[in-house]
Nucleic acid binder design. Structure first.
Lengths: 344, 344
DNA sequence: CTGAAAGCGCTTACAG
DNA sequence: CTGAAAGCGCTTACAG
């Protein structure tokens, strides 16, 4: 897993290997027009294969002072949390953070890679929601160390990954509701194809099991982490003949959707129904009532990712390719004993 | 206002001016120890005065492909909105965005400047909440073009600034409530030292005046844009003998604080009280009920800032040192006719 | 503590 | 379309 030192991947090295002169390679790099198509292709392949990166007059092992932080897109409500952590840790080592979103625009990734190559950086932190493994291999070709932050939890051991304990989080949220006296607890799932969704669901199951409760399949409704899906799930749950007295949503966004569904039905939180989320975005604190939720330490995950990047750069050992930080239940005002039990 | 081309601010130029050799300047730049203190100081001053920036083997006018985006800190709930816009526009011109927070840590700014100098960038977008004009002048010394995004609205003509129409926004929110039939409308102010707060307040005043309503000083309570201050303002307003039927808060955060104050008093939105915010953060859409608010086009402001930066770089004309983008009232579910008027 | 010399990585005319 | 030569911005030994 040690990075190829890439000491001598210079223009002239590439030129020698390609059997051309340095200026020709330079022309290819700078997109000048007048290079024979086949020469260009040969050189381009070589550049990729050898992981060429512009080094200007910098010394071989010198730091650039820049770390790439790559998102799929910047709509994710937790993006800032991660940015903050990454910026903070990077700042401590005198680096800046280049934030990019590679999105939908497919051409985008290509262009972005060209840009990364020309301006160089000391490493990349990828925030994946299925951020293409193709991107990862392309970056590998640039011989830039890569760490993946994975709030959605796809375990991939080919690359160091930072995540959080989704299962334990799901368990603690469920246990909290059970401890309050709830017996019918709804669950709104995350996107089923993501591992974190399964882990949270399994945590919910484990919580019920521990308490000797049966899982009622009607109470598990699918969501995709979005507000809207939470809203629809809420409508479905409270349209049931025997609705739950509490809902655990696998994201804060969905929990807020449940809030709105409850409000529209005239149900009060937590008097009539308790709600728990997952993430602890700032919004959780500012919702009305403030949301009880499972905190995912996104900023710490960002910090750890940067520190891991540094170890990779320095060729130090990485303890484990996958590190999970602890989640923590944050109890606020959206949970209370169920109405029936209140009279007990 | 045209930027000094800084064509020839090279190490050897500085060396010549300082009466030393190039290697000595290089040593100062790289923080090597063995330079006489007074030589070092002389060179450092010169570097600053001439705006030296490392250029490696890049050609004179060549782009670095990096834009700095500087926040005071990354807690501001609108930070991502701006990041998204800046990233988008930068991406379109093949640049990356280096996001930094200079915060409380005072040493920070110095170190950050050193880093900017060594890695270079094509320009800087500062997001100010009173981001020191000292920082701005330091950046000027680096001869990096600077544009200020100012969601809080300090007009400063020394530097190109992008803002939004705070006054018009305040007016439209107030008129909306009046049109619904409200006559007692509370206002929660922003931080009084910021211009945007005054502009929004004046928009509120103008709205009342247009409708021939008197301003009741009891209905104007101070806030500081934060959630907590909104909560306290809500408590104060609804502790009045004659409370308002609607509240216009100068930020979404404060509007959400008002939500919570109302919930705790058992008052319903919009049935009992209408609430309007300002900003249109994503949270506004996800609050319960979804918040009617004045949209501040933060992403567009970011995009415009980048485009202005490019014009500065290319020495093109800037139409105006201060551009204000239009705000827009977004009507959602937190506003309705007042309870009394409902029976009319 | 400082400079003359050599060298590195890259680009820019120029010539064919 | 390509290369030999010159040159630029910077750094690294080396010598004093």
């Amino acid at each position: 897993m040690a990075q190829t030192p890439s000491r001598s991947v210079t223009i002239s090295a590439i030129a020698a290997e390609a059997g051309v002169s340095a200026p020709t390679v330079s022309r290819v790099l700078n997109g000048r027009g007048d290079v024979a198509p086949e020469t260009r292709e040969r050189i381009e392949n070589l550049l990729r294969a050898r992981g060429y990166r512009r080094r200007g007059s910098r010394a071989a092992g010198e730091r650039v002072g820049l770390i790439d932080l790559v998102f799929n897109d910047l709509d994710s409500p937790w993006a800032v949390e991660i940015i903050r952590g990454v910026e903070d840790a990077a700042h401590d080592m005198g680096s800046s953070v280049a934030v990019s979103a590679v999105h939908r625009r497919a051409s985008s990734t290509r262009q972005w890679l060209a840009n990364v190559r020309s301006r160089a950086s000391d490493g990349a932190v990828l925030v994946t929601t299925g951020l293409g493994s193709d991107l990862r291999s392309e970056l590998e070709e640039l011989h830039i160390p890569v760490v993946v932050i994975d709030p959605v939890g796809l375990p991939d051991l080919a690359v160091p990954t930072v995540g959080c304990t989704n299962w334990a989080g799901g368990l603690s949220a469920t246990s909290h509701l059970i401890d309050l006296g709830h017996r019918r607890i709804g669950f709104v799932t995350g996107r089923p194809e993501l591992w974190c969704s399964r882990a949270r669901l399994d945590g919910y199951r484990a919580g019920l099991e521990t308490a000797g409760l049966d899982l009622d399949p009607d109470l598990v409704v699918p969501g995709n982490f979005d507000y809207e899906s939470g809203f629809r799930a809420g409508e479905q749950l409270f349209g049931l003949a025997e609705p739950p007295t509490a809902v655990f949503a696998a994201s804060d966004q969905m929990a807020l959707g449940v809030y709105e569904a409850l409000r529209q039905r005239g149900l009060r939180i937590p008097d009539d129904v308790s709600v728990v989320g997952f993430d602890d975005l700032p919004q959780a604190r500012w919702s009305s009532p403030p949301l009880t939720t499972v905190r995912q330490p996104l900023d710490d995950m960002g910090r750890l990712a940067v520190r891991t990047l540094r170890r990779l750069r320095d060729n130090e050992e990485i303890e484990s390719p996958r590190v999970e930080l602890a989640t923590e239940l944050i109890v606020r005002d959206s949970t209370a004993p169920p109405p029936a039990a209140a009279g007990d």
